[in-house]
């Protein structure tokens, strides 16, 4: 991730009023060789990530790794304190009571997996306390579906606007927005 502040550049914005229209529009726009910078929707739309060609999220793998870390931590704490550091002889019972370790191990596995995954999720999505949002249109969290494309030369811009209009966009406009393109 680059540390330098992202520049603001001109974008072409197409606003749709229905999720199925948007899904169709995304497919058409990409077929015409236009690179979509981002899509904003008020709720998750099934199939949108495939239409945009996104790879599957790796967050489940993150959860698994953190969960494993939790399992190891739990066993290390329990064996470290109860078996190695200070054994307590209670009626000759084992100082390595593995069945008794199951509940705490399970709980810490779940705790680590959940917190680790959600932490990664916040970082990956670049959201968190104090983050100022750049809202393209305030209705994008209500009932509008917004597509943005980074503007280039005039001919390209016309092509994009044409694609928006062909797919039934309600509003087409230009707007200065932060450049999200990765170099």
């Amino acid at each position: 991730m680059s540390k330098k502040k992202k520049e603001k550049v001109n974008h072409l914005v197409g606003i749709y009023d229905d999720d199925e229209k948007l899904l169709h529009a995304v497919e058409v726009i990409r077929q015409r060789g236009i690179k979509i910078a981002d899509v904003f929707t008020p709720f998750p739309i099934h199939g949108l990530e495939h239409a945009l060609g996104y790879k599957d999220s790796r967050l489940p793998d993150v959860a698994f790794i953190f969960g494993t870390l939790g399992t190891i931590t739990a066993l290390a704490i329990q064996i470290g304190t109860y078996t190695i550091d200070w054994q307590v002889n209670v009626g000759g019972k084992s100082s390595l009571p593995l069945p008794s370790f199951i509940p705490v191990t399970f709980e810490l596995t779940v705790l680590f997996a959940a917190l680790g995954m959600v932490g990664t999720y916040l970082i990956a999505n670049k959201i968190g306390p104090g983050v100022q949002p750049e809202v393209v249109d305030p209705r994008q969290t209500d009932d509008k579906f917004v597509v943005i494309v980074k503007a280039k030369d005039e001919a390209y811009n016309q092509k994009v606007k044409q694609a928006y209009n062909d797919t039934g966009a309600e509003t087409v406009r230009e707007q200065i927005l932060t450049d999200t393109e990765e170099e």
Partner: peptide, 20 residues
């Protein structure tokens, strides 16, 4: 938290919801 609802955000949102 600065949520804007981009497609990528929602994709991760769904993954997180399911695993949680």
């Amino acid at each position: 938290f600065g949520w804007v609802g981009s497609a990528k955000n929602w994709q991760r949102f769904e993954a997180v919801s399911l695993i949680l």
